[in-house]
Every structure is written in structure tokens, then in C-alpha cells.
């Protein structure tokens, strides 16, 4: 018997009806209603359901520390360190430029004079 034939037989059986006795039908109905009631409660509090899901999946509240809080703390610390490093790099660069402008061959006016800038551009700057 191939797959199509099995499907056909099942379809025929279902068309005929299950012919269950009254006791079984009552138990089935009760089980269905119980399942629906539980589903309604879960969908009414989705946030709690989601949180419970996360905690449940991660192995309970004690697992939150290594799985969530620790990486988060490391990430924040890393971001602060990067920000601090960038600030200090910028400050160091400005100090470097200031030192060069103050000690260089060219006088300050050469860096302040827009005309000189334009004139340099004219002469293939």
C-alpha cells in the first residue's frame, strides 16, 4: 500500500465518523476546554510568558548572571573604554597640532590668513 492509498483510507474512515461512545466524547470535550482555558491565560500576559520562557530556557534565575548580566556588564565596560580612548586620542591629536603650530617655521598668521590659503591654492596648492 503506497502513501496515497493510506491517505485515501484515512479519509474514508474520517468521513464515516469516529463512532465514539458518550463517555469518551465527554472526556474529550473536557480536555479540549481545559486546554483552551490554559491557552487564554497564557496569551493574556505575554510579557510574563516571554520572561518566563527566557528564564526557563536559560536554566532558571541563577543562570541569568552568566548568560545575560555578565556579557552586558562587559559590553558596557567596553563601550566606556572605547569612548574614553577616542576622547584621549582626539585630545592628544589637538595637543600635537598645537605644539607643531607653536614651534613651526611658519608664523601663526600664516595659519590664520585666509588670503594665504587662497593664494597657495592659486599657485597649484
Amino acid at each position: 500500500m503506497n502513501e496515497q492509498q493510506i491517505a485515501y483510507r484515512i479519509k474514508q474512515c474520517l468521513n464515516r465518523g469516529l463512532e465514539l461512545d458518550a463517555g469518551k466524547l465527554v472526556r474529550l470535550k473536557a480536555a479540549r476546554e481545559q486546554a483552551l482555558a490554559r491557552q487564554r491565560v497564557e496569551s493574556r500576559i505575554p510579557v510574563l510568558a516571554w520572561a518566563g520562557n527566557i528564564i526557563g530556557k536559560s536554566g532558571g534565575p541563577s543562570a541569568l548572571v552568566p548568560r545575560v548580566l555578565l556579557p552586558m556588564a562587559v559590553l558596557i565596560l567596553g563601550l566606556i573604554a572605547i569612548n574614553h580612548w577616542q576622547d584621549s586620542q582626539l585630545a592628544a591629536e589637538i595637543e600635537e597640532i598645537d605644539a607643531a603650530v607653536l614651534t613651526g617655521d611658519l608664523p601663526l598668521d600664516a595659519y590664520l590668513d585666509k588670503g594665504f590659503d587662497a593664494w597657495l591654492k592659486h599657485s597649484s596648492y
Partner: peptide, 9 residues
């Protein structure tokens, strides 16, 4: 120099 944009120092 003024024409080039130079301002009094």
C-alpha cells in the same frame, strides 16, 4: 592680499 580674503591681523 585683501582681494584674496586676507583680513587685518
Amino acid at each position: 592680499r585683501r582681494q584674496l580674503g586676507s583680513t587685518p591681523r
